[in-house]
Design a protein around this nucleic acid. Structure first.
Length: 373
DNA sequence: GAAACTGCAAAGTTGGGCCC
DNA sequence: GGGCCCAACTTTGCAGTTTC
């Protein structure tokens, strides 16, 4: 069943999912709590985005002064399919004007340098921004030359000008997207699939403390709205009433520091887990892998506080990872590539693609140890 | 009051297809 | 034909409520 869904997703290449305003707000606020100046005097760039629809654009415009932003740049990928809907107050899509009577061919670029109560109604709203944009006063709204692909020269040029990239890029291009951010030495806060953790190019960044998970969605459940509401989502994935699609394994990826990353994970001892942790019931000891010299910890909560050796944990452990508490030794791939030779059971003659327990292959694990106090 | 039902929150995961 | 890579999930359990 699971794989059926994966195959469907592969075929659909459905990369159009809009992040909710409240999720952006909650995530950004968690960085501000840790450091109120996280975004101060910074140029924020939100590419792979559609300013007409985007809650990223809306959030950063409405919080421009409070965050102390220097500039906000937002570019869309391909012409907006939904122009004049959410932000219809901006007037006609300029790409339409450019190619009257023919399909839209270009994407949009917004550059915001200044916000304020332009229309004098006592409050600052998107209408003020719309007026400024119409007047081209300090702010800019122009069509892009190309389709807004993040790899295009004009978008790379905008990336170079920016300090922090905040967006929800297409999952299918996640690796390429991250690679570009590191090439240009940018700070970022982006949404990606948890499974990206298992990609070796991504994992090495996590292991070397150059990339980590953000504060995260409520209870790890991310809800996105989608213009392409497919009817073939599995039960419980798409809610027609709200128009939201629920995904379990999405997370924020970042290199900005936040408080949750420094909170220690409270743990029970080995004996306490075996006695009181319901998920460990029926076991008298932790399983060991057939092929790796480590214990298997099937749930993050079940990490024993008193075990000094190597532990294999699910990738979702990263959501609770505190670099002062744990050391990440490597992944399945690292073992396979011979980077952790001491972890291989010498008498094992089988595969080294994943961990095996009693002959059964289990899901990706990463290998950790408690840091010595 | 036990069983069945329901809604919600929490936390984990494979195997088909393609490439060599 | 074996191994690697990929893909915007599913399942489970608990707690509160209803039913008989």
């Amino acid at each position: 069943m699971a794989n059926k869904n994966l195959t469907k997703a592969k075929k659909a290449k459905n990369d159009e999912f809009y992040t909710q305003f409240s999720d952006i707000q909650k995530e950004v606020e968690s960085y501000l709590e840790y450091n109120p100046d996280t975004f101060k005097d910074k140029i924020i760039y939100s590419n792979c985005d559609d300013p007409f629809e985007s809650n990223f654009f809306r959030y950063f415009v409405l919080n421009f002064d409070r965050l102390g932003l220097k500039r906000l740049i937002s570019t869309s990928y391909k012409p907006s399919p939904v122009a004049n809907t959410q932000l219809g107050l901006f007037g006609d899509d300029k790409t339409l004007e450019k190619v009257k009577g023919r399909p839209k061919v270009t994407a949009n670029k917004f550059i915001i340098n200044e916000v304020g109560d332009i229309d004098g109604d006592g409050s600052f709203t998107l209408e003020d921004i719309a007026q400024q944009l119409r007047a081209n006063k300090n702010n800019e709204w122009t069509p892009l030359e190309g389709d807004g692909d993040f790899r295009s020269a004009e978008c790379v040029e905008l990336l170079k000008q920016s300090d922090i990239v905040v967006t929800n890029p297409p999952f299918s291009l996640f690796r390429e997207y991250i690679t570009q951010l590191f090439e240009h030495k940018k700070q970022f806060l982006i949404i990606g699939s948890m499974n990206s953790i298992t990609y070796k190019e991504i994992f090495v960044l996590i292991k070397n403390n150059k990339l980590w998970l953000g504060n995260g969605f409520n209870a790890g459940n991310a809800y996105f709205s989608t213009p392409n509401a497919r009817k073939d989502f599995a039960s419980g994935v798409y809610d027609e009433k709200t128009g939201l699609v629920k995904f379990r394994n999405c997370h924020w990826f970042t290199n900005l520091d936040h408080g949750r990353r420094h909170q220690p994970l409270n743990l029970m001892t080995t004996n306490e887990n075996l006695r009181f942790n319901k998920k460990m019931q029926g076991k008298t000891t932790y399983d060991r892998y057939d092929n790796y010299d480590a214990i298997d910890v099937p749930f993050t909560k079940a990490i024993p506080s008193d075990y000094e050796g190597v532990m294999g944990v699910p990738i979702s452990f990263l959501d609770k990872y505190n670099p002062n508490q744990f050391e990440i030794l490597g992944s399945d791939t690292d073992i396979k590539e011979g980077k952790l030779p001491l972890l291989i059971i010498s008498k094992w003659n089988g595969k080294l693609d994943r961990g095996y327990i009693h002959g059964k292959r289990i899901f990706s694990r990463m290998f950790i140890k408690h840091k010595k106090k």
